[in-house]
Simulated scan of single mutants.
Amino acid sequence: MPEPTPEPTPESDVLRIHAFAALEPGPRLMVMGGVHGDETCGTVGMERLRSELDEGSVKLLRGTLTMVPVANPLARRLLRREGERNLNRLFQPTPEGEEPADYEARLTDVLCPLLDQHDVLLDLHSFQSAGDAFAMIGPRNNDGTLEPFARAEEEGRLALQLGTTRVVEGWLDIYAAGLQQRNPGEPLDEAALAYGWGTNEYMRSRGGYGVTLECGQHEDPAAPEVAYQAIHAALRLLGMVSEPAPVREPPVLLRLVSVTDRLDDEDQFAREWATFDPVAAGEVIGMRADGAVLKADRDGFIVFPNPEALAGTEWFYFAVTSDRKL
């Protein structure tokens, strides 16, 4: 009898990378999915488009399209968010002369040089709580020290085309504020701040731009379609395919303004929240284990409520309507 096929291990994992290059030069778009192993919609959307490109029903007119359907094979094999850690944090190559610290560092050592070859990133995700799909963008143009950026208009145009009813800004600002909140009075820890870097932060640091698309709840049967349509939308916007663009209502733009950590496993939400549930000033959001009541300090929206958050990690974000114009 033949020997049974051994179970795959982290050492045997391989990143599948699908690349399509038109003969006419043009934009270089990279699409990623499966950065978190339990987020499968991007993988399904990419495989569908890959079949269309292979069979010729979709033709790439110019530029280069690279798709990574499963960016974290270990997390996907385990069907959980992380392999050894969150791949969408500390998304940077290992410093020269050092050994990769973990499995995800080995992945970034492959993925970062690949991103360096591209201009635009579309990173496809989903989320745990109920809620509608939305896009996340980076900062406005600035020359500050946290996240200097000069391509906000292009990034905003991409977000507008992805078909969501909402676009959210403000991730790295709020991540940095969360660090200060956990360590009041201390200088901002640069190593901890670097941990807040994800795929798009890396892409912007290399002169490109990127949008994260949260395609809906993990198990939402519509999420793969959202991912698939978004890839087509990006290709259309960049002039890489010839397709009619649907007429869309402009999305509502929100800005993250705070993050609240779960301090104890007994901290509980006041009710089952969904992403983008509206909250009125003074409304009770949750209760701490010691009986303290958390109330909204203004009108706004709950984002990424996680009733399963571990103590010491992000419990929920809070957003308000933004005055930014895309």
Rank of each mutant, 00 (worst) to 15 (best):
Q92K: 07
R157D: 13
L65D: 02
L29N: 04
Y103M: 05
G163I: 02
P73G: 09
L326P: 14
A130H: 12
V167H: 03
R236V: 09
P250H: 02
G208K: 06
V247Q: 08
T165D: 14
E147I: 01
M203V: 14
R85W: 07
L188R: 05
P25K: 04
G144T: 09
G138A: 07
S322Y: 07
R288W: 01
D132T: 12
T108W: 13
T164R: 10
L60D: 09
A227V: 06
G170V: 06
A177D: 12
P187D: 03
D264A: 04
S258R: 12
E11A: 15
L124W: 12
M136T: 14
F149W: 04
D132C: 03
D277V: 05
A292S: 10
G198P: 09
T9R: 13
A270S: 13
L213P: 04
Y195V: 14
E169I: 11
T9M: 10
F127R: 04
L107D: 09
M136N: 08
P250R: 08
L213T: 01
F276M: 11
R140K: 08
R236L: 01
R262I: 12
V293P: 03
G26M: 13
A135S: 15
G239V: 08
E308M: 11
A274D: 09
A22R: 01
L254H: 10
R76W: 13
T199L: 10
A105L: 08
S129M: 08
F301V: 01
E39F: 11
Q217A: 13
L111G: 07
V252A: 11
L253S: 08
G63H: 09
L124A: 10
T260C: 05
S258L: 02
D323I: 08
L238Y: 08
G33W: 13
Q92P: 00
G185D: 09
A21K: 15
G83I: 02
D173L: 05
F149S: 04
I285E: 10
L15W: 10
I302K: 03
P113K: 11
L326K: 02
K59M: 10
P246T: 02
L23M: 10
E11R: 14
E283K: 06
V320L: 07
T165R: 15
Y209F: 15
P250M: 08
F318Y: 12
T64Y: 00
F127H: 14
D299W: 06
